[in-house]
Design a protein around this nucleic acid. Sequence first.
DNA 1: TTGAAAGCGCTAACAA
DNA 2: TTGTTAGCGCTTTCAA
Lengths: 341, 341
Amino acid sequence: MSTLKPTIEDVAQLAGVSRATASRVINDVPGASAPLRERVRAAVAELGYQPNETARALATGRQRAIDVIVVTPDLSVGWLGTHPYVSRVLPGVMPVLQGVNAQLRLHAVAQATAADELDQIASTTTLGAVFAEITPDLAAHFYRRCRRAVSLVRTDPAVPGMEADNFGGAYEAVNRLHQLGHRRIAAIHGPTLNPCAIDRRAGYLQATQRLGLADLSADGNFRREGGYDAAQQLLERHPDIDAMFIACDLMAAGAVQAITASGRRVPDDVGIIGFDDSIAAVCTNPPLTTMRLPVEEMASSAARLLLAGGPLRGHRQQFPVDLVVRESTREPDTGRVGGTR
Amino acid sequence: MSTLKPTIEDVAQLAGVSRATASRVINDVPGASAPLRERVRAAVAELGYQPNETARALATGRQRAIDVIVVTPDLSVGWLGTHPYVSRVLPGVMPVLQGVNAQLRLHAVAQATAADELDQIASTTTLGAVFAEITPDLAAHFYRRCRRAVSLVRTDPAVPGMEADNFGGAYEAVNRLHQLGHRRIAAIHGPTLNPCAIDRRAGYLQATQRLGLADLSADGNFRREGGYDAAQQLLERHPDIDAMFIACDLMAAGAVQAITASGRRVPDDVGIIGFDDSIAAVCTNPPLTTMRLPVEEMASSAARLLLAGGPLRGHRQQFPVDLVVRESTREPDTGRVGGTR
DNA sequence: TTGAAAGCGCTAACAA
DNA sequence: TTGTTAGCGCTTTCAA
């Protein structure tokens, strides 16, 4: 045995079988008896054999790659760099792919033509797809054609997913505002059909209900402009609002702008808790207290799952959403929970 | 000729040469006469032949990949997602790599151990490296070991680079503030040793000098906190400051926070122009007028250059830095240059 | 200078 | 069920 990386030939020899059989075992395709499977597996383990993905790709004609898919209504230039959520997915996936000979393909597909494009991707994906942003129906559509898919947002129950506790995060945010003495707690929600937004909205509703607070909801679109407009309307309709739970930091950034423009101060007049803990959260004035979504971790886990051979039907993994205190909420009356500047 | 992608065999046949000769021509290695070279090239053009990179990788044992390198003093989690500049490099490079069978490898290396790690990368890179963030000496160090490198920031003169007009951008920013009637124009600069920061500083200095304005400079670190601290000190030392040129949006976000905290208003009391046009620019309150750095375009160009077979020694490409007007500068007295909200 | 031929490491028909 | 045998498309010796 040489010092070089072992090949499938080495494995076959050590196991005393042909290369074909070794290949069958390694690829988990039928056509090998149990005893031989055992021997091959032992040889693989002993040699520390790792298939050469390049050779594999050449032989099969397929690249080993993870497809990161972002379905977006707006494909304008710069969508990724400026999208505080999606831009965290890539850095999460990337390190997982180091040294395993797999590519990362990125697909930004427009909502309008999504179905066709997803079909295309489904037919060419190898390791599988990570949905960074998608609607449940499109996710299900893709999943029907290709089982190798993991979603980072809640989708169809059948589609494997990494799930952040959006409901719990929203619930906690409202509770926190209540603890700080706020009683007129408004909310700016995300798109009506967006699953993350739906969960956060539900969390807000349940919390306000439990606490006996009024439901002061407005709809946003997960974009800064939407946050601005919603906050403005909210304040016009309910001038006595003393806090807002806002379903993403980008909208919260807009809301802060609107609140300030109305002559109110944050957090003195209106306390704010955002969602995501994206870069936007520290750029606002003042910086946002927010609920941290562990996007990078979720993306890594998804990539690892795909790399390991694909998830099981309905696979689900939970991720916590934690409070990050900054200055858009006032300090509690007692004790010291300092904001970071 | 079939409907399939043409292979080198097709090229060879059409040119009436052997596969070996075709390969030599295509790879630009010596050992083929001029007339044959011509015939092969013609065949390549006619067939629209594109080498299969997987086969190439298998035959040579080398992966085709572009290495994106970020040297950073701080390797803490989330550095990429929250770095408004670097997070735009990936989306720039990515699309260029679609369908050309090349990987994108991302390396975040700590300043402390950079030299060794860069050696390692230099010895394994194939298409070459893109420096998203690096110091001139490290860039030169890498370049000495491997010529295939393009920097997105100004480095050693020998190292090929995509250069944004940082000097001109800063110069224009100051001029703009002057046109708007500001006369006490301060600056918050980036790290003393950072080339981009150096150029922007120089632009500010030259502009203030030409305009006969005082040099009101403070040092920052390209981070929000640094912008906050610098702005605070600046205002203490020179309470009559009526405008600031700030060398990056992230610092500008901090500066806005500090200015507001001091009881001043933006843009009424202090006009602000940032730099980058990153996501931070629209999250501040009010949104920033800023100088747009075309990071995505620069990154694409770098990737294309590398893909085309590596840059020439001293290759240089210029990119403009344009003004984007938002609300952190007041409107001109005459005419209408509306800020976008 | 040119071409024939042997791989690179693997998969997948096809036989046995 | 197993093994034999072609390739996948390219590079690179080695002879000619």
